[in-house]
Write a protein that binds this DNA or RNA. Structure first.
Lengths: 205, 205
DNA sequence: GTCTATATCCCGATAGAC
DNA sequence: GTCTATCGGGATATAGAC
């Protein structure tokens, strides 16, 4: 096997992977924009500059495509979490993760998936990348939550899992869109507001 | 015109209105269960025990049907708000409204409408009942929010509109479903947890 | 107004040539 | 693997009899 062959193969594979990444990015944006049900495979293919039949060579179904997009954002979250300084206070890290989440959502990059659709749930659970990312993210956040509670920074009366779910729920909080549509606040202010209401609550202190 | 005629007409109209209410209730439940896109008119008609063509005599489109369901829940919210004792502390009333909202959601009676679908948005804005209910609810809540802030009960640093949107957002908070699926908490505990995280925040006090 | 039956369209998925 | 062209199913909406 001559080297040219190897080079050409590698190049081809790189092109393929790049195209696949482009498809996933497009799907990701459309999922964020209109949700799983309203997103059509035609639109993804069109905006990705590829024929629909070609897309189906990469992903066996619309559900698998959405799962790939979900796995991607899970990987991004995992990487962000891993990159946080180990010795920082847990509460700071949790705030940083929530800030990151809100910024991704405001950037239009947070896929919004219905928790009700059963076929999609199956695809998400069946996707190993997706599940692994989710589990690592959950485990690390839960550990930080419990550490923050032990340190007296987070309310220890709340079950850790409830805090965790509260974080996840903020990833699809429509309050951000409401505030943006209102037009009175910049994205940075919106993030600060939601961070504040989430951690400090609505009550006066 | 003899009285019998009037009675019969009134009776017929009552029957019609009752049937229409049944249709809206069914749509409301399905909207809560699976959302606007996944809900089908066939299913609404089937579960309401009516032919689809008959349903379309009452509502010109799927969007108008969803708008009617939305108007209904808006009316219910308005009635609940009106019935609260005028002299109660604003914060108590706000907590009562949020509690009512969460209980309605847990009961499967809170229609979940995508904020992105443009045709649905048009129908909602075009529905006078829907808009009137929304405006009255918003106005009353905003007044209570500002009063609570003036009384030092709610954080005065938060814009009242941000607090308002936070309330509305809780009406479609997936954290409730997550907690229920987890199976470790009863509905009453879930309501208490979300109320606490919303008003007192996640931080220790 | 209610029904059965149907029109019409759109979408997910595939066939088959290249 | 990519394309054009198409299938098959299901959804919204309507026709027309009663």
């Amino acid at each position: 096997m001559n080297p040219d062959n190897a080079v050409r193969t590698s190049f081809k594979q790189q092109m393929l992977q790049a195209r696949e990444e482009a498809i996933i990015q497009t799907a990701n944006r459309l999922l964020a924009e209109k949700g799983f049900e309203a997103m059509t495979v035609d639109e993804v293919a069109l905006q990705a500059g590829i024929a629909k039949a070609s897309l189906y060579k990469h992903f066996a179904s619309k559900e698998e495509l959405a799962a790939a997009a979900t796995a991607r954002v899970m990987r991004r979250a995992r990487d962000f979490i891993r990159a946080l300084p180990e010795q920082a206070p847990p509460l700071d890290k949790l705030r940083a993760v929530l800030r990151w989440t809100l910024e991704v959502k405001l950037a239009g990059d947070m896929p919004s998936l219905p928790s009700r659709n059963s076929t999609l749930r199956t695809a998400l659970i069946g996707n190993q990348d997706c599940m692994e990312g989710w589990m690592e993210v959950s485990d690390r956040l839960r550990a930080w939550i419990e550490a923050a509670q032990a340190a007296g920074a987070l309310n220890p009366a709340l079950p850790a899992v409830a805090v965790l779910y509260t974080f996840f729920a903020r990833a699809c909080d429509p309050a951000l869109e409401f505030l943006r549509i209102g037009g009175r606040y910049q994205d940075e202010q919106i993030v600060t507001l939601v961070l504040s209401t989430c951690f400090e609550g609505l009550n006066a202190r």
